[in-house]
Write a protein that binds this DNA or RNA. Structure first.
Lengths: 326, 326
DNA sequence: CTGAAAGCGCTAACAC
DNA sequence: GTGTTAGCGCTTTCAG
């Protein structure tokens, strides 16, 4: 930086200002500095800048795994939104382990990230306090709670399940069933799904919860088990579209018509939902929008004047996508 | 840090050493410092450490988009591998735009990342020089070239196409066809596929290249076009499994048996490949292994004594996964 | 609009 | 084993 300053015939501060607040400089000075930067191929050391300004312009984001398409979408949008605001994303994966989450938060705090994005609302013990004490903005995503750490953007899995139930019941189905995974979100969807059934006064809703990672090969035995429990099931809500597509293939194998013999509903509106035959009726969660919103909430807070702002919770909801399978 | 030092009755360096090289300390001193750290809830400022040591312990990785499952897998494995070595991942997305790639490399260099992972082998102009001049280790991924920037781990798309052709021809098919996308990798696969056909002395291989983003709804017209060109096609190689699954559904709609009337081969061995009926014969690229290898190459270089090492190119190949569709 | 001085919080190198 | 000294490369005051 001092080389640039010397070449442009100005002081260090001026070079700094040419980079960070160009409007404050006389246009001549500015272009002189810019020339020097160009000439020397100077690349400012952002680490030094971060240390001096105590703003890292980095946001830390944690997902259970990035290779889950729904989280990938959110991270994609988040990266883009933050990038437009001049922020970079530091990625962490918890692999669904609480101690990894704990460790990652320490790393994030150690790097003095300017904000943190978390997936879900259940976290490692102590993490909540730690983050709140740090004072940096936090956004939790992909779920809903009345008691967020700070900000929140997600949707209610219970509501989603209820919506699926309502739709299927509205179409005249009376023997509902569910295939999901052994994890919280899936259970909440099931709960909402059953609540809809109960509200309509229809009987028990048998469910199969597959141990994660739920693979497609688990579909056949799960369906077998459901049919064994309730031979007359006529509508099946699956925890995700891949599972639902597996059910479609399985129905084809059994010679069951869809939705004639069995109505099938997925969750997620993944690409496969349109590729399948029949196309899947499903629930769409706008994963990109979650990332966008989370990014915007952070940028807003970071641009703010520093006074503590009211907590924000955004419910982006789920959308019913009616196609052919139900 | 000075609070910790005071509380433990030692100097600053000792605290630093307790964190970074605990073996150098007497066990009493160490536990005294650790107690103080615990008590005060001290979180070391890694930014300051980076500046002082000129090692950031951050690796920058660039993908076209993280919401493409194959890149997500690589990034997942890379994050894990680097994490085990104490490195964090800074994520950048190019959205397939050269200027974004350029800008991101500047950000990475500005942050003084200790290494860079790139996707693909064709880059923004000047990027190659810039990186080589910086002297930091670079790994290119997901492709093959005889002239890498530094290190390389990927596979040959041409070889993959050839392998697919060879397999289908070996099964007695004689009228091959291809559905792909209008992008380099797809074209290279087609080239290899055609080379195999040529080597076997069979006729022209009609191809449909869909403009990205290739969606499932494009399958029907593409198949129509191929059949119009060559009514007798008996084997179809698809650029990815989703496309192949679309073809399966389309065949079901037409009443074509698979692989009886048409053998269908995919690429990628995505989850859908096992979920479909019939299950897809496909080529598997071990995306996770690419990430792992890239991470390990970097860690090796970063642990090295600093002497320039020979460039490394790893061809992880593709694997033929024979199932039912071909 | 520009500059001088004083750190940001840590680590490297060298002593003891 | 531990401490002292001198920065890392920038930004933030505060002057002018």
């Amino acid at each position: 930086m001092s080389d640039v300053a010397a070449a442009a015939g100005v002081s260090l501060v001026t070079v700094s200002r040419a980079i960070n607040s160009p409007d404050q400089l006389a246009s001549e000075t500015l272009s002189a500095v810019r020339n020097a930067i160009e000439q020397l191929g100077y690349v400012p050391n952002l680490t030094a800048g971060s240390l001096a300004s105590s703003r890292s312009r980095i946001v830390g984001a944690m997902v259970p795994t990035i290779s889950n398409a729904v989280f990938a979408e959110t991270i994609e949008a988040l990266t883009q939104t933050l990038g437009e605001g001049g922020y970079q994303l530091l990625l962490g994966q918890t692999s669904y382990r609480a101690d990894d989450e704990q460790r990652l938060v320490d790393v994030f705090l150690g790097r003095r990230v300017d904000g943190v994005v978390l997936t879900g609302i259940t976290h490692a013990p102590g993490l909540r306090d730690r983050l709140q004490r740090s004072g940096i903005p936090v956004v939790e995503t992909w779920d809903m709670t009345g008691r967020p750490i700070d900000m929140l953007v997600g949707f209610s899995n219970r509501d989603a399940g209820y919506l699926a139930g309502e739709y299927l019941l509205g179409r005249g189905h009376r023997q509902l069933a569910f295939i999901g995974a052994q994890e919280d979100r899936s259970r909440q969807r099931l709960e909402g799904f059953r609540a809809a059934a109960e509200a309509a006064g229809v009987g028990a809703v048998p469910a199969q919860l597959i141990a994660p990672p739920a693979a497609m090969v688990d579909v056949r035995p799960a369906l077998d088990a459901l049919v064994a429990q309730a031979p007359g099931i006529d509508a099946l809500f699956c925890n995700n579209d891949l599972l639902a597509a597996g059910v479609l293939f399985e129905c084809a194998r059994r010679g069951w018509s869809v939705p004639g013999r069995l109505a099938v509903m997925g969750f997620g509106d993944q690409p496969i939902a349109q590729a399948s035959f029949p196309q899947l009726t499903t629930l769409r969660v706008h994963g990109r929008r979650i990332g966008e919103q989370a990014g915007q909430l952070l940028l807003g807070r970071l641009a703010g004047t520093g006074e503590p702002q009211a907590a924000t919770a955004v419910d982006i909801g789920v959308e019913l996508v009616v196609r052919d399978s139900a």
